[in-house]
Design a binder for these strands. Structure first.
Lengths: 339, 339
DNA sequence: GCGGTCCGATAATGCGCATGATCGGGCGCG
DNA sequence: CGCGCCCGATCATGCGCATTATCGGACCGC
C-alpha cells in the first residue's frame, strides 16, 4: 500500500475555484496590501475550495519564495531531554516553547549534529543550522570561537547565558552578579564575617560572574572569603574543611551539591549557614528548604526567543540582557552568625 | 548595525570554484550516480570553497526540489515541556531525541497555532506539518478524525500510544493489556478475590485497554471487581469506599493518585494492597515504593521514530507495535490477602 | 463621448536546488 | 585518419509559492 499522494498546489485550488494561482496565494497569505486586492466573493470561493480539499501551503516553497518560515532553531550542546540535569534545560525549554507558541513560530531541534566526546558540534560540515531563520543556543558551556564564527557568517542567533567573550554575541542571561551581592550583604547583616565558597570545577561566564561578585562583595564588606573546590561525593569533607577555616556561612554554586552539603550540615555539631547559588528541581521536593538564588530560567528562554525574532525582523533591540534573579527562602538556612 | 544577510548559494560557490552550479549540487549531496560524476580535483576544490565560506544548503530549496530533508516532525497536543505531567512527555521525548540523533534526523516541534481550548490543532489552515518528512504524534488523547484525515492525505506519521479507531493509523504503544493481566494473576496468587479499580475520568484507548484487561482477568479468575471513579483530592474517600466494598487490593490507574492513596493507606487501620497502573517521576523519589506497572516510554518514543523513518524509506514494516511493560517492585505494596 | 481612475484579476518572474538532457574533447581502435 | 565511446562538465527545467508589472473593464466628471 504505497501511498501516492497527489500534492495539492495553489494551481489546483486555482483551477477548482476558477481563478489564477496568484489569487490563491493572496487569499492564503491574507495579505491586504494597497496594491493588491481580492473581492469578497472570490475570496470566499477560494476559501471554500481550500476547506473542501484540505489544502495547506507548502512551507518549503513559501520559505524559498522569500518569506520567512517562522522556524526557530534550538541548538543544545547536550541532549535536550536529559534524564539528569533536566532542571537546567527543562525550564529554559519551557520558556522557549511558550514564547515560540505566542509568536507563532515552530521549533527546530538540531539533534543530528555530530557529536564530539558527548557534546554536539555547532559548526560542522553539513551543518543544518540554516534550515532555521535563526537559532537559540543552549548549554552550560559554549565554544566562544564557534559563536564568533556564527556572527561572522551573519547567522542570526541568541545565546542563553552570559557570553562576554565577543561583544557581538547577543545573549539573555541571569543577573547573578547583583543577587549574589545581595546575598552576601544579607549574610553580613546577619553577622557573618568569614565566608566559604564551594565552586564548580568548570569555568564559564556565569561561574566566573558569581565568583567575582562574591569575592568583591565580601571584600567590600571587609570580610574574609575561603574558596574551595567542588566535591560532590564528599559533602562531609567539604564541610569539615570549611569549618576548620572558621567560616560561618557557605555559598555553594551547584544546587545539587548544596542539597548534599545541607544534609551533612544538619547533622553536624554546629551547623553552618548555607546558601545555594542555583536551583534544582529536587529542591522543590526537598522537605527542608535551602536559602538559594533562583535564575528565572523560563523567562530567560522566552526572552531569548523574543530577542531572536526581534533581530530577525530587523528591530534594533538591546542584544545583551540579564534578568534579575530571585532569592528563595531567605530565612531558611541563612541564619545569624554565632557571636 | 543591521547585518546584510548575503545569502550564500550554490551559484556563489560555483563562481568561486570556477565550476557550474550543478557541480556544486552534486558535490554537496555526495551523489555518485552512474550517470553523473565529478573528478576528484574538482570535488576537492569545491569542498575547499565550501569550507572557507561556511556554505550549507538551503533546506527549503532542497525540500522544494523534491529531496527529503531528514526532518522529523514532532506534534504534541499539549506543551512539550510541561511543568506538570512531565513524567509523561519527558521520557517519550528523550526516546524520540535519541533515536533521531542515532538516525541523523533533526526534530521539528510544531509549537505554533494553539487554537482550541488549550489543545493544539493538528490540521488547520496554514499548518506547517509538511515541512517535515513525516511526523510523530504525542498526546494522551488524540482526535481520531484528524488522524484519519492525515492518512487520507498520505502524510506519513506514527502515533505514540494505541489508536485503534482507524486501522490504517500506525502507532507504537504499550502493551498494558498483558501486564495488567499479569498483575491481576499475581494478586490472585496472593489470595486476593475482591479487586478495587480507580479509573481515570477520560476515555482513551489505553484507559479502555487497561480497564478491559482488568475486568476480563478478574472475571476469568472468578473474582469480583469494584470500579470507582478517580478522586485525586480525596484519597481517604476512595479508600473508605473501597474498603466498605470489602476489596483487599486496589488497582489505581493514575500514578499520581496512587501516591496519594498510598499515603492514606499506610496510615489506615488495615492497609489494602495497592497497585499503580502507571509510573510518575515522583515515584522514583518517593521513599516508599509502590508496586506498579511501567510503560517503556523512552523505548516507545524511539521506536516510533524508527518506524517513521522506515515508512519514509518505503520499507514494509509492522505499523502497529505494542511494547511490553515492566512490573516494578512486585512485592512492595501487593501483599498477601488477609485470610 | 472621452480621458482618467480605480478596482479586480492575471501573467510572468525568480527564490535555491536537483536532475535529466546535452555537449565537448581526449582516446582507442580499425 | 575517421568513427565511436566515455568521461567530465554544463544547460535547462521545474518544484510551489510570493510578488511585481500589467491588463481589462466599470465608473466618474467634464
Amino acid at each position: 500500500m504505497t501511498s501516492k499522494p497527489v500534492r495539492l498546489t495553489q494551481r489546483h485550488i486555482a483551477e477548482l475555484a476558477g481563478v489564477s494561482q496568484a489569487i490563491v496565494s493572496l487569499v492564503v497569505s491574507g495579505r491586504t496590501d494597497a496594491t493588491t486586492r481580492v473581492s469578497e466573493p472570490t475570496r470566499r470561493r477560494v476559501l471554500r475550495v481550500i476547506e473542501e480539499t484540505g489544502y495547506s501551503v507548502d512551507p518549503a516553497a513559501r520559505m524559498l519564495a522569500g518569506r520567512s518560515n517562522a522556524l526557530i532553531g534550538v541548538f543544545t550542546y547536550e541532549s535536550a531531554f536529559p534524564r539528569e540535569s533536566s532542571d537546567f534545560y527543562a525550564p529554559l525549554l519551557r520558556g522557549v516553547e511558550s514564547a515560540a507558541e505566542a509568536l507563532g513560530q515552530d521549533l527546530l531541534l538540531f539533534t543530528s549534529s555530530r557529536t564530539q566526546d558527548g557534546r554536539r558540534r555547532l559548526l560542522h560540515e553539513g551543518s543544518r543550522l540554516r534550515m532555521a531563520d535563526g537559532c537559540v543556543l543552549l548549554g552550560r558551556e559554549m565554544n566562544g570561537g564557534e559563536l564568533s564564527a556564527l556572527v561572522d557568517r551573519g547567522f542570526p542567533f541568541v545565546a542563553v547565558g552570559r557570553r562576554d567573550g565577543d561583544e557581538r554575541i547577543p545573549y539573555v542571561g541571569a543577573a547573578y552578579c547583583a543577587t549574589v551581592t545581595e546575598l552576601v550583604t544579607l549574610a553580613i547583616e546577619r553577622g557573618h564575617r568569614r565566608f566559604g565558597y564551594v565552586r564548580l570545577p568548570y569555568d564559564s561566564e556565569s561561574t566566573r560572574d558569581r565568583l567575582e561578585s562574591f569575592r568583591s562583595a565580601v571584600d567590600q564588606a571587609g570580610a574574609e572569603a575561603v574558596i574551595t573546590a567542588s566535591a560532590p561525593k564528599n559533602p562531609d569533607g567539604v564541610l569539615d574543611e570549611l569549618a576548620a577555616s572558621d567560616v560561618t556561612v557557605v555559598f555553594v554554586e551547584d544546587p545539587e551539591e548544596a542539597s548534599g552539603i545541607a544534609r551533612s550540615n544538619r547533622s553536624a555539631d554546629r551547623p553552618l549557614s548555607l546558601v545555594a547559588l542555583g536551583e534544582s528541581d529536587s529542591q522543590h521536593n526537598e522537605a527542608t528548604p535551602i536559602t538559594h538564588l533562583s535564575a528565572p530560567r523560563a523567562e530567560i528562554g522566552a526572552q531569548a526567543v523574543r530577542m531572536l525574532t526581534s533581530i530577525l525582523s530587523g528591530d534594533d533591540v538591546p542584544r545583551r540582557v540579564l534578568l534579575p534573579c530571585a532569592i528563595v527562602y531567605p530565612d531558611a538556612t541563612l541564619g545569624r552568625a554565632a557571636t
